[in-house]
Every structure is written in structure tokens, then in C-alpha cells.
Amino acid sequence: MTTLSVDKVSVQLGPRPALTDVSLSLKGGDFIGLIGPNGAGKSTLIKSILGLVPSTGTLAINGRLLAKLDAPERAKLLSYVPQERDVAWPLSVEKVVALGRTPYLQPMRGLTDRDGARVEEAMAEADVLVLRDRLLSELSGGERARVLIARALAQDTPILLADEPTAGLDPSHQISLMKVLAGLAQRGRIVVASLHELSLAARWCTRLVLLDRGRVAADGAPQHVLTEANIAEVYGISAFLQQSAKGLIVQPLDTI
């Protein structure tokens, strides 16, 4: 089973510390929701795991230090779904998803049959097969979000990191996206997503990590992390909480 260990990771962005001594131990099957206010360090944590921002501390996958892996090796372990859903050129959905095979391509060669099969699987898994010939730039936000997840799936990594994948989506697209991510975790991957919709996070994530000004304020099962006291302290708001059959419902009420 895949393990990802984050040990005392700190990141300094400009004069202020963006992350301070963050330690987490994740295993295959975990669907981790990173929650916390804007600027709490959610995106920075994702980027530091990916090696996109310089950090101190130790990051290891299956016991192997990430710092010792070269870029293509790392790309076979970690895939990334960015918050921005823009593409520079009007590429078709299928071509965008196929970009996920980049770390596996041999020099001067195109996609192999195996690459092609993996692209098909990824499109099926993220439910974008019907969109394959459309241009990404012509799709709605919800469709684009799923295509970018398919792109990350084609990369065939045991760990997938998504930065605010549900931002700007309508409730129906948010739910279908969370289902896709939860399904990936159930099939053994580690999925990490930063989220602002607390009810969505509580409903679908197996574990929540609450960040506050670059530190881990709480870490555990959704009902243990999303308490009135934690929400008041970290977000500075009061909230209405109710346990339902489908999970915890969190309705923010007012600033304190």
C-alpha cells in the first residue's frame, strides 16, 4: 500500500512563513480534505509535496525520499490538478488527457498502445469519454474540472493532489466531482484535495486536515475536526452543525 509521509515540512514565501512544521502520514485509500481559511497554507502544502515550492523538512513516498527522485520519477508517483482550468491553446479533450502520459513517453516516440489504453481508462474513470473530441476551451467549468482530473489519472500515479477542484462549480458538478475523487481513493490511491465547502468535505473525505496560518490545527475524522470550537477558532465564524444520514452538515452562520 502506498504511503506518503510529510514530516516537519516548512515553507517560507517571502518574509512570512507559509507552512510551519506540518507533519502528516497518509496511506492508500485516504481521501484527505485540506480545509482552512484563505491563506492558511492549503495550496502551499500541495505545492510543497509536488516540489513546486522549496521547502524544508522531509517528504517521502513508500519510504523513498522525494528530494532524491528526479523529475520524471516523481511524476510517476504524484499527479496534480491545478485550480486554474485554462489551457494556452485550443486542444481537444483527448489530447489534453493524453498529456498525462508525458512521464512515460520514450524519446522521439509517440503514444504506445498501452498509453492509449490508459488514456481511455482515465477518460472513462472521470466520465469524460463523450467529450473526447470537444475543445477544452469550449467546455463548462464542471466539464473542464473532470477533464483535468482525467489528465492527472492518465499519469497513472498512486497519489493525486487537487487544488480546490470544486471551486466555481454548481452543486451537481461539485458532487459528481467529489464522487470521482472518492472513487479513486476507494480503489487504493491517496487523494488530497483542498476544499472550501465544508459539508462536501465532511460528506466525501475520509479524513480532514484543518490548517490555520500554516500549522495543522486539527487532523482526523470529519466529525472530530469540524466542531463548533474548531470552526470558531480557525475561521472566526459560528456555524450550524448537524449529523445526517449522509454525513455531517456544516452551515456557516455569522462572523464572530
Partner: peptide, 19 residues
Amino acid sequence: RALDALTLGADVASSMGIR
């Protein structure tokens, strides 16, 4: 190949192993 990957931005290209 790097230019193809950069279509999705520098961060995604980097996460796909592009130096």
C-alpha cells in the same frame, strides 16, 4: 514535448516531469 506539457501551465508541466 515540454511545450505540449506547458499548455497546461508551468506547475502542471513540472508535475509531469518537465524540467
